[in-house]
Design a binder for these strands. Structure first.
Lengths: 207, 207
DNA sequence: ACCTGAACACCGTTCAAGT
DNA sequence: ACCTGAACACCGTTCAAGT
């Protein structure tokens, strides 16, 4: 733990301990406080006590930095989905928990979430890592649905199609919540609960 | 019609026929071809053969221009939703048609759609026109659901909550499609159809 | 190998001045 | 009232030069 906290204030050192990680963390902090449009490469350098151009040793350009931010987000999202699924038990309640966890992630880190889905990164990009992490987050959902299918708890439809649908629902709720587009009479908790219930009704096998 | 096409190439005129409308149209054209990040106020002025600062006579700043673009988008979206609802007949098939029309609008004009939902405009803004148009688009959906409730075709749940749920689903599908996040084995038509069907299952009264 | 400082091209916005 | 040209502050990025 001590060796990691060492990289926190690395001033007056020619060789930066782990500049790439520090740049990424600072970018995340700036995005969180000032939004995506408030992120400037120059300010990152200033805050880290490093030249404005030092960043280019670790990222090709601003787009590559945002790509790394998005990749980091998908990794975190997958972890939280898997945790929710495991903690709730591998049943329909687990599916509910994943939906809630998904929306919670987006609402808790709206700007980070927007970098992942706001069109800032090209999905057809040559960087495979982003695609791998994004696919991994979706796979957590597919795996859960397959497990539920095995126990005859959800329809036997194509699992990937079902997963895309479930993802669409929680993604839609999350985006509307972030954008402040939810009608005043319908708060996040209400619509989340309603969505999860209707999701279950639409997907689960009626006994 | 002739009087409108007159504003198309208004060069060498001190008094511009309808500069505000021309600025908005040019902004839409630039967004469509180059994306939101490709929109620059300077280029708009150049293309219209007008000073770079002429725009500030009609819009407070770039944000106000984007706000107008978003407002325009919500107005078009509502029109297309109402048209779909009316043409398909005021029944469950009409609800399907609205869902398809919604996704079609987003996929056909991805950058315009992103301005409406990409966090570029503050929903808490002092400009009431944007909020009015956004609420109007949602209202088209609420009205349809109320009509369906009257005929006992959908559940008697709170219509606004139901509308927010339906909106979330089509919004989620649309955003994932625009972002290119749909899994390769699931194209837009497939997930749209699946979503509309599951939506109906989740919302309709089971006879 | 990694970092620096100056420089370049570009942008949104302001403002005194024109008609 | 509406528009213009010059100017200001800011940004991403490049590049020869340093250690």
């Amino acid at each position: 733990v001590a060796s990691k906290s060492q990289t926190k204030k690395p001033r007056n050192r020619y060789h930066h301990g782990n500049l790439r990680r520090a740049l990424l963390d600072e970018a995340l902090a700036m995005i969180r406080s000032d939004g995506v449009s408030g992120l400037t490469l120059r300010e990152i350098g200033t805050r880290l006590g490093v030249s404005r151009t030092a960043l280019y040793r670790h990222f090709a350009d601003k787009g590559a930095l945002l790509e790394a931010v998005a990749t980091d987000g998908f990794r975190t999202l997958r972890e939280q989905l898997v945790t929710a699924w495991n903690q709730a038990g591998h049943d329909l309640a687990g599916l509910d928990a994943m939906g809630v966890a998904y929306i919670h992630f987006a609402v808790a880190s709206p700007s980070h979430y927007r970098v992942m889905f706001g069109g800032f990164v090209e999905p057809s990009g040559h960087q495979p890592e982003l695609a791998v992490e994004a696919a991994g987050a979706l796979q957590a959902l597919v795996d859960a649905l397959i497990a539920l299918q095995r126990e005859r708890l959800v329809h036997g439809d194509d699992a990937t199609t079902m997963a895309m649908f479930v993802w669409s629902v929680v993604h839609g709720v999350a985006m509307l919540a972030i954008d402040g587009q939810l009608h005043e009479s319908v708060n996040v908790a209400t619509i989340s609960q309603y969505a999860v219930e209707r999701l279950r009704t639409g997907v689960a096998v009626t006994t």
